[in-house]
Nucleic acid binder design. Structure first.
Length: 139
DNA sequence: GCCAACGTTGGC
DNA sequence: GCCAACGTTGGC
């Protein structure tokens, strides 16, 4: 199965990369947006996801891997609408890649996340993914 | 703290 | 089915 690339977003106060690092694996729950949910459903095992901190930090801070494809997230009164996937922690970026940094580069013009900052799960192209990794090494 | 963008809800 | 009102999120 081809690897797809994603960006997942979290408020560090709610779920931070540090906690993720400690837990190693986490169920990605709480997505209550249909567009984001549909992206979750498209995720394959071993897909890679950039981990972004919203709020004060506004930077991509790490990388995670999908280790379990979508399964229902039952909530009271609605057992079937929402889904979760499992991610495992891969690593923190050496240098976080800030939102400002992304906005300055032409390569990210069509990055869905920049257009819809509220979307908690969004696709990233392979090229963009590796460009971000490169930026994390450099600066 | 404000505002823009987006989603949801409810009245018609 | 439309649209106004409202709530939430996140960047600035």
């Amino acid at each position: 199965m081809a690897t797809n690339y994603w960006l997942i977003k979290s408020e560090p106060e709610t779920y931070s990369i540090d906690l993720f690092e400690k837990e190693k694996t986490t169920a990605w729950t709480g997505v209550r947006n249909y567009q984001a949910r549909n992206f979750l459903k498209q995720m394959n095992k071993n897909d890679l996801a950039l981990f972004y901190h919203s709020g004060k930090e506004r930077a991509i801070v790490g990388i995670s891997k999908c280790v379990k494809t979508f399964y229902p997230e039952p909530i009271p009164g609605d057992e079937t609408t929402w889904v979760q996937v499992d991610f495992s922690f891969i690593k923190k970026l050496k240098h976080p890649v800030s939102l400002l940094n992304l906005k300055q580069k032409k390569e990210f013009e069509n990055l869905l996340f920049l257009k819809q900052s509220r979307l908690s799960v969004s696709p990233v192209s392979e090229k963009q993914y590796f460009e971000i990794l490169k930026m994390a090494e450099e600066s």
